[in-house]
């Protein structure tokens, strides 16, 4: 009665209906698998408490001219420097042709707020934190591998390939910036 167990016994059944059922079941299973897989992967993404700190506000009013502070943004150190007029002039005087990673001082600051320099404080070489007000160009010097940055945080000498990175930020008022 049931000597043959292979699917071939069902061959006399309408093939299209059978195929449709199998394909539909398989498709629904695939959709279900994908729907389960996504949350299992997505849980690796930054969680809500991390994302809540992705954008921070920082009040500049406590920083005197010639001072800089290091704050934390997205787990990274960020330099905020209130530059002196001499530093600004020095940065503006450098011709682009002398730069390894050509960028004007204006491109690295916000119009009307040229004294403020906001940069991620990791050397673009291998990530050390450079030392401020030092180096051959009066800016920053990275002691790890000897990269020199100028007063606009641009790379001038040493192994680092790029200028110190300016994070996305904007002025909410004259003394309040929002980073991120």
């Amino acid at each position: 009665m049931d000597g043959d167990h292979t699917l071939a016994t069902h061959a006399e059944k309408p093939a299209t209906r059978r195929d449709f059922l199998y394909v539909a079941t398989g498709a629904v299973a695939a959709v279900g698998g994908a729907a389960v897989a996504w949350p299992l992967i997505n849980q690796l993404n930054p969680d809500a408490s991390t994302l809540a700190l992705a954008t921070i506000e920082f009040n500049l009013s406590g920083i005197e001219e010639g001072q800089s502070v290091t704050i934390t943004w997205r787990g990274l150190p960020v330099f905020v420097r209130n530059r002196t007029q001499a530093e600004i002039d020095e940065a503006k005087a450098v011709p682009l042709s002398e730069l390894k990673d050509p960028e004007t001082d204006e491109e690295r600051t916000k119009p009307g707020h040229e004294q403020w320099l906001v940069m991620i404080a990791n050397c673009t070489h291998l990530g050390c934190v450079p030392v401020g007000e030092s180096g051959d160009f009066d800016g920053w010097f990275c002691p790890c591998h000897g990269s020199h940055y100028d007063t606009a945080g641009r790379i001038r000498r040493g192994p680092a390939p790029l200028n110190l990175v300016v994070p996305p930020y904007e002025f909410l008022s004259d003394t309040l910036i929002q980073i991120g």
């Binding site: 949350p39 299992l40 997505n42 849980q43 993404n45 969680d47 809500a48 408490s49 991390t50």
Partner: peptide, 13 residues
């Protein structure tokens, strides 16, 4: 509780 509240899909996982 952090898992339940903050991690993506954490409440369900």
């Amino acid at each position: 509780e952090h898992i339940r509240r903050n991690v993506n899909g954490g409440r369900v996982i």
